Simulated assay, not measured.
Amino acid sequence: MDIAGSVALVTGSNRGIGRRFALELLERGATKVYATARRPELVDLEGVVTLPLDITDQASVDAAAAAAGDVTLLVNNAGVSSQGSLLTDDLASARRAVDTHLWGTLAMIRAFAPVIERNGGGAVVNVLSALSWFAAPGAGGYAAAKAAEWNMTNAVRPELLARGISVQGLHLGAADTDMMAGYDGPMLDPADVARAALDGVERGVSEVLADDWSRLVKDSLAHEPEWLAARLG
Rank of each mutant, 00 (worst) to 15 (best):
L73F: 11
G120K: 05
E149K: 00
D184I: 05
S214I: 00
V217N: 00
S206C: 03
A111V: 08
V71L: 06
K32F: 07
M152A: 15
P114V: 14
K32G: 03
A65H: 04
D176P: 03
R157K: 06
A8G: 05
M187C: 11
L45R: 09
D99C: 03
P186V: 13
D192W: 00
V49T: 15
G122V: 07
H223Y: 14
A162P: 03
L23C: 09
M108T: 08
R96P: 03
I3D: 02
V43D: 06
I116N: 02
T11D: 11
P186E: 14
Q168S: 10
L198P: 00
S60G: 07
L228C: 07
L42W: 09
T105I: 05
D62G: 05
K32C: 14
T177S: 07
L209V: 06
D2K: 15
T153M: 10
G84L: 08
L161A: 15
M1K: 07
G173V: 05
W133F: 15
V217H: 01
G5Y: 04
S206F: 10
E159N: 05
G18S: 06
S129Y: 12
V127F: 09
P40A: 12
P137K: 08
S132L: 01
R118F: 02
T72A: 04
D176R: 13
D199Y: 06
A136W: 13
A230E: 15
W213G: 02
N76Y: 07
G169F: 03
W133L: 13
P52N: 06
G121T: 06
T72D: 04
R15M: 09
A59Q: 13
V167P: 00
G5M: 10
V125G: 10
R96E: 15
S132Y: 03
N154P: 00
L25P: 00
P225A: 10
D219I: 00
I165E: 04
I116R: 06
S166T: 15
W227H: 14
A92S: 15
N119G: 05
E24G: 08
G140F: 07
A139N: 10
M108H: 02
A37D: 06
A230H: 13
T100E: 12
A148M: 12
A97M: 03
Y34K: 10
G69M: 09
G185V: 09
V61W: 03
A229R: 14
P186F: 10
A145T: 11
V205L: 15
S166E: 05
D89W: 00
